[in-house]
Design a protein around this nucleic acid. Sequence first.
DNA 1: TAATAATGCTTTGTAAAGCAAAGTAAATAT
DNA 2: ATATTTACTTTGCTTTACAAAGCATTATTA
Lengths: 162, 162
Amino acid sequence: MTEADQIGESALTSLRRILRVVDTHSRELARTASLTASRLVVLKILANGPTTAGTIAERAGISQTTVTLLLNKLEAMALVRRQRSEDDRRRVWVELTPQGRAAIDKAPDLLQDVFLQRFRKLPSWEQHGIAASLSRITYLLDADALDAAPLLDVGPIDRAAT
Amino acid sequence: MTEADQIGESALTSLRRILRVVDTHSRELARTASLTASRLVVLKILANGPTTAGTIAERAGISQTTVTLLLNKLEAMALVRRQRSEDDRRRVWVELTPQGRAAIDKAPDLLQDVFLQRFRKLPSWEQHGIAASLSRITYLLDADALDAAPLLDVGPIDRAAT
DNA sequence: TAATAATGCTTTGTAAAGCAAAGTAAATAT
DNA sequence: ATATTTACTTTGCTTTACAAAGCATTATTA
């Protein structure tokens, strides 16, 4: 094993740990705030103003089916309101209710807040370093490359080599 | 919004994107390799040698109940074999079958592989930078540290500096 | 030794996320 | 007028995950 591999492994270990913390956190969120992570995602998308189910699906990166189900729950919780569009009666506008807005405030993404709070206290050079590394990693894991390629095929990797 | 907050936001965006890719990938893995991420995790733990269900739960950070369920599936797929312990008949040893071992080889964590392959090609300074940033982030998100931690403890960084 | 407690795992019941496929209704194109 | 497309919902299924209860088995203690 080369040195690069060792560093890579330790990077991966960190990455796994990060994933794990995020995961744990979202379960915690579900337990305490009775708002699961994906429902919160939907609410936050709606915080930018009313929109349609399809748009939510697209922005959240999940299927329309799932969005419908999430909306059903959120509507049952009275956090969200549906309304058929007047001009195009196929479409359904979704908007936050006042309670929905309150729910977002009451159940903020704490993990994110903690992150930002601490991040803010780091020296500037380190902030830049972290941001740069993260954006580099998104490249290392590039979604497009993965989507395009058959997963069990090794081909596409070279394309992004260099 | 301060500059630090802007950088922090962009870091968070990257982080979200990373999480998203990992998520997508694991669903993809499930579809193509008929081995879901969590099952693969269990198999990989078993790759270090036979162990008990409780230990697997601990190492994977999931409940024993869940481990039992996963083992049921894996056993049904003949990737894993259970055997009551002789000395303590409450315990159940779990080990990989040859098929199980083959499954691990056939369905490697490709995301990880892609990451490592690309990572290896980065200049050394960048490798170190990324590894350091990641380890720093685990601190920024650390669940434990949430209660106690001295926020400006610089300790871990120096180690990976240079 | 017999009753009690602790341990290790499984079962059962519950809830969420998520998708594909089929279905419905409305708008658009032919 | 008919066919196609679009937008959303319903249905049925799978997986993950946990808590609570249950079942053996071992250890402890009276």
